[in-house]
Design a binder for these strands. Structure first.
Lengths: 235, 235
DNA sequence: ATTGATTTCCGAACATTGTTCGACTTATAG
DNA sequence: CTATAAGTCGAACAATGTTCGGAAATCAAT
């Protein structure tokens, strides 16, 4: 019965399994010692193989990093999406803040990962225009854009969200830059000298107020943190 | 007359000279190949010394990086300050934008340097609370804070600017996060898909308008770029 | 000017890294 | 069953950061 689940050869399964193992190990090393600690030989050691054998699966270390970046984008997108779903029935003002708050929380609990996907750590590594990283970006921001569009009364989000985004990209990029800037500074310890949690909340509320968007419930921040604790499910 | 300029021993001078050379060479390597290209042996090669000899001047590569970060902060601060002085007589609305614009321009012409000082590239490297990097930060932001304070009618900026900053830190951090977020995304090629120059201008004007600050001259962006060209002086 | 104590400099070595090459074994397809 | 492809490995190469011991230069005294 080796060909029971045919169409899937044994090597194909083992290959996918090994690539998965390599990626989780790489992210483990990343969490421990930063980007510089992801080492080819260390990965080989972790999966019990010769360094030379890994070249069957990745052409070089940059290619592995690329795969890692894609998976990390997906991880962030999943975190944002889960939060959005958990607050799907909350008032509109609250739902506007869910995205930035999930974004920030994931960034603070995955600082090296956040820097990995958002700042160029390699020499000439620049995501090519039509590359897969841009689609990964849209995956992250689709939920947030949808809520903003709803709040601003944009065309029915049903079919062509992309068109609405293109039309109002100025507004969306402005909002994104706002909370991304705050989060980046926080992740890299440039706001350690103040109560950044409270400052973030005030900044977010101000951004929404300035953009004539509905205000969130006064207790939203606590509600979000409470939901975080109760969601000790997926890593 | 070897001791003419006494108080300064020959070794002292040569030491300072060599440290300077090492730093400029390190920034050269940084500009070429990114952070990972700064290599101990390469530095030794560039100054014509044995790798072992460099340990007389820096305990390890992290210590050199620290010195490099400090000098890079000073470089950014100098760029901002020069721009501020050049526009000292411009209308208040224009002067509000000079800081962010100089910040952005320097960042775009020194992308690896920008990432070096603002994102943790080393494993456990975190600027200690009372460390010298925070004072370097204030050096960068003092000119901008002064203008914002003037526009908002804060207490006489004569003696205690620090007190005014502490009082209104929320506002200042909000503004900083806004343009820093935009610049960070731009530096790392996350806004390549749009006309980021125009988007930056619109975002900045919107930020100022939202904060009830005076608007800049319509032609400010061009005026700034024009000044840049005429300032082909210091690197 | 001579001495004695630092500072500077270097060659050699060690452990580690990414990557390549050729030979060997194993799985897949016809 | 067999030929082709995929996987695995050991050995080797060049390059890296860092340490150590000793030689040379410079400094601060007498």
């Amino acid at each position: 019965m080796t060909t029971a689940t045919s169409g899937e050869t044994r090597r194909g399964r083992q290959r996918r399994q090994l690539v998965d193992d390599l990626c989780v190990e790489a992210r483990r090393q990343l969490a421990v010692g930063g980007t510089g600690s992801i080492t080819w030989r260390g990965l080989a050691r972790a999966v019990g193989m010769s360094p030379a054998s890994l070249y069957t699966y990745f052409a070089n270390i940059d290619e592995l990093l690329t795969e890692l970046i894609l998976r990390t984008y997906a991880d962030l997108a999943s975190a944002v999406q889960q939060a959005a779903m958990a607050f799907a029935d909350a008032p509109l003002g609250d739902r506007l803040l869910v995205g930035p708050y999930a974004y920030r929380r994931w960034a603070l609990t995955h600082r090296p990962d956040f820097n990995l996907i958002f700042t160029d750590q390699l020499p000439g590594y620049a995501a090519e225009p039509g590359g897969p990283t841009v689609s990964a970006q849209t995956l992250v921001f689709a939920p947030m854009a949808a809520v903003v569009g709803e709040a601003m009364g944009w065309p029915p989000p049903g079919d062509d969200l992309a068109a609405a985004v293109a039309e109002h990209q100025q507004t969306l990029v402005g909002l994104w830059a706002g909370f991304h800037g705050f989060v980046t500074l926080e992740v890299n310890h440039h706001l350690d000298w103040l109560d950044s949690r409270a400052a973030f909340e005030r900044s977010m509320r101000q951004m929404m107020e300035f953009s004539s968007l509905p205000a969130a419930t006064p207790t939203f921040a606590d509600a979000f943190d409470h939901w975080l604790l109760s969601a000790a499910t997926v890593t």
